[in-house]
């Protein structure tokens, strides 16, 4: 555990010493503030559109931060060759994968907390904070979803040599899942034959990241999610993240690290 935390610590330090994360945050804040100060039809009571835009920006930014940070970890270690002194220490490759995962996940959690904090500030500014319980749930679910995304990007970074290729693939896959995975059963039902069976297969195999998106509940002030489903969703994310990490470890374990 100490090894994992030490590895994670390096990742976190790197994230907050780089500039790109701040760029995303400042852009999100700027766009939200400009949008929020616009006056539609002399009515200052409108807040849902602002919630929608802010949350969309938060989702996009968090995805960018998580995928890009996760995708570069192991390739950067190999490129700068720090992987060699690292593995020459009593550190296993499994620990490297887990430590990197933990680092990126914690780091994106910190970034996410900052973004959701901003969301709360916007709510307070517009005097429409919404349910705090739901806000916390949204943060938690979002963070759990990022665990799966980070694990996916780390696995990808071991399969594809170029981090940019890996990042792009991860974005496409995650966006595709977010938009389509929930509807694959509908599509499958509409399509007879092997195509439909394939879609059903995908429907049950793919991680349903869209489960973790409770933005509509927040925007439209619906009640919070009950505890049971929340726990199930958390476990669901943990299982997928673990499966992806095991796959990553399995790929990395057999990989010759030549100079």
């Amino acid at each position: 555990m100490r090894t994992l935390l030490a590895l994670a610590w390096v990742v976190i330090k790197e994230l907050y010493r780089r500039k790109d994360f701040y760029v995303l945050f400042v852009l999100t804040a700027l766009i939200t503030l400009v949008l929020g100060s616009v006056n539609f039809f002399e009515d200052t009571l409108m807040v849902r559109y602002l919630r929608e835009v802010t949350l969309l920006l938060i989702w996009v930014s968090a995805l960018v931060i998580a995928v890009v940070t996760a995708a570069r970890q192991i390739p950067a270690e190999r490129e700068s060759r720090t992987i060699f002194p690292l593995l020459a220490k009593p550190v296993t490759r499994g620990q490297v994968v887990l430590g990197k995962f933990l680092g990126v996940w914690l780091a994106s959690g910190l970034a996410l907390a900052l973004f959701y904090g901003f969301y709360l500030v916007v709510g307070a500014w517009k005097a429409a904070s919404g349910s705090l319980a739901l806000g916390l749930q949204a943060f938690w679910l979002h963070w759990m979803m990022l665990a799966v995304v980070v694990a996916l990007a780390i696995l990808g970074s071991l399969l594809f040599s170029a981090p940019s290729v890996n990042s792009t693939i991860c974005f496409v896959v995650v966006t595709g899942i977010l938009l389509l995975a929930g509807h694959l059963n509908t599509l499958a039902a509409a399509q007879p034959g092997p195509g439909g069976a394939l879609m059903y297969g995908l429907y049950f195999a793919l991680p349903h990241l869209e489960l973790f998106d409770v933005r509509d509940l927040m925007i439209h002030e619906h009640p919070p999610v009950p505890l049971g489903p929340l726990v199930i969703a958390t476990l669901y994310a943990a299982v997928y993240a673990a499966l992806l990490l095991v796959a990553a470890w399995w790929v990395f374990r057999r990989k010759p690290l030549s100079t």
Partner: peptide, 15 residues
């Protein structure tokens, strides 16, 4: 850093 920034900007371009 450049690529990350570019990605972020692309993502926010629509908005």
């Amino acid at each position: 850093t450049g690529r990350t920034t570019a990605l972020g900007c692309a993502a926010l371009l629509t908005a």
